[in-house]
Design a protein around this nucleic acid. Structure first.
Length: 274
DNA sequence: GCATTACCCTGAAAGC
DNA sequence: TGCTTTCAGGGTAATG
C-alpha cells in the first residue's frame, strides 16, 4: 500500500531509468483504473516526448515530459511501476506500457485497479482535481509545527482520522499515521482541536521522523510493494505498531491493540499512547 | 463540517 | 482438498 515513502522510493528508483530518455509509444489494457484511462490523450502527451523529471507530491508520482505534459500517477492500493526489458513477459494486470528508447519499457501493473493514470498540460496540473485539494506535503519546508497546529485546530475529529485526510496533509496513509502517533505517544482517539501546542509539536516531529525513516528504508513492503527495479523495501522491520496486534510494544511492553476508525484499522499501544 | 457507509477490485487468508 | 466467505484499504460519493 504505497504511501509517501513508497512513492518517493519509486520516484527515486525511476529517475536513472527515465530522465533524459525518449518515450516511443504507449499501450493500455483497455480496462479502467479508478477512472478510465484516456488512451488518446495519453498517446498525444507522449508523442515525441522525452522525460525531463520524475517527482512526487503527496502520494502522486509526476513524470514531466518535454511536450509540456505531465503524467500523473497514483498507485492506489496495489499499483507498481516497473522498468523491464522489452523481452521480459508482462505480468497479469499490466494496464499501461510505455516503450522507452533502448530496450526497456515502463509498466504500470495494478491488480486491484484502484490507481490513477492521467496526463495534464503542465500549466493545468496544479488546478487538476487530484492536486488542487491536497494539503501540504509533510516533507515540504513549509510544513511546520505551526502549520500542523493550525490544521489540527480547524477540525474536531479523531487525530488518526485527521492524519489520513489528504486535504490537510498529503502523503500520510494508514501505516505511517499509526506509526507517527505511536512515535509521538499520542492516543489515536484524541480530538484534534484539544491537542496542546506541545503535543502538536511532538506530532509534527514524529510525522517527519517516521516518513524519513520510511524513505531511508526504501518503503514498507507487506505484500505488493516494490520499487521500479523490483526491489522490496525494509521498513516493515522498523514498524512499532502497524500490523502488530497482540505483540509487545517496543517502548513499554504492553500488548498492541487494534481498533477501527473510519473503516480503517488503527494499531496503537494502550500503555504509552496517551 | 463531519461521521458513516458503500463502492471500486483482486488476492490472500480464514472458515467450512 | 476445494470451495466460499471475509478482509485489506485510498479515494470518492451519497446519506444522515
Amino acid at each position: 500500500m504505497p504511501e509517501l515513502p513508497e512513492v518517493e522510493s519509486v520516484a527515486r528508483s525511476l529517475q536513472p531509468h527515465l530522465v533524459g530518455r525518449r518515450v516511443l509509444g504507449v499501450e493500455t489494457s483497455g480496462l479502467p483504473l479508478r477512472r478510465p484511462i484516456d488512451r488518446a490523450r495519453l498517446r498525444a502527451a507522449c508523442k515525441d516526448a522525452r522525460v525531463d523529471a520524475v517527482r512526487r507530491v503527496g502520494k502522486y508520482l509526476l513524470i514531466d515530459l518535454s511536450t509540456e505534459n505531465v503524467l500523473l500517477i497514483h498507485l492506489g492500493m496495489s499499483g507498481n511501476l516497473l522498468v523491464k526489458p522489452r523481452t521480459e513477459p508482462r505480468r497479469p494486470h499490466t494496464h499501461a506500457v510505455f516503450a522507452l528508447e533502448g530496450a526497456a519499457e515502463l509498466r504500470y501493473v495494478d491488480p486491484r485497479r484502484f490507481g490513477v493514470l492521467r496526463s495534464y498540460n503542465r500549466a493545468d496540473l496544479a488546478a487538476s482535481p487530484e492536486l488542487k485539494i491536497l494539503g501540504l506535503d509533510p516533507l515540504d519546508p513549509a510544513f511546520t509545527a505551526g502549520y500542523l497546529r493550525a490544521q489540527l485546530g480547524a477540525t474536531r475529529r479523531d487525530v488518526k482520522t485527521f492524519l489520513l485526510d489528504q486535504t490537510r496533509l498529503a502523503g500520510v496513509g494508514n501505516i505511517y499515521a499509526c506509526e507517527a502517533l505511536h512515535h509521538a505517544a499520542i492516543a489515536p482517539r484524541r480530538r484534534t482541536h484539544a491537542l496542546s501546542a506541545e503535543r502538536a509539536a511532538r506530532l509534527h516531529a514524529s510525522i517527519v521522523t517516521v516518513l524519513e525513516r520510511g524513505i531511508a528504508n526504501r518503503g514498507t513492503s507487506f505484500s505488493d510493494y516494490v520499487d521500479a527495479d523490483g526491489a522490496a523495501g525494509e521498513n516493515q522491520h522498523a514498524l512499532a505498531v502497524y500490523g502488530r496486534e497482540g505483540l509487545a510494544c517496543p517502548r513499554c511492553g504492553r500488548k498492541i491493540r487494534r481498533l477501527v476508525q473510519g473503516a480503517r484499522s488503527t494499531f496503537y499501544c494502550p500503555g504509552c499512547q496517551k
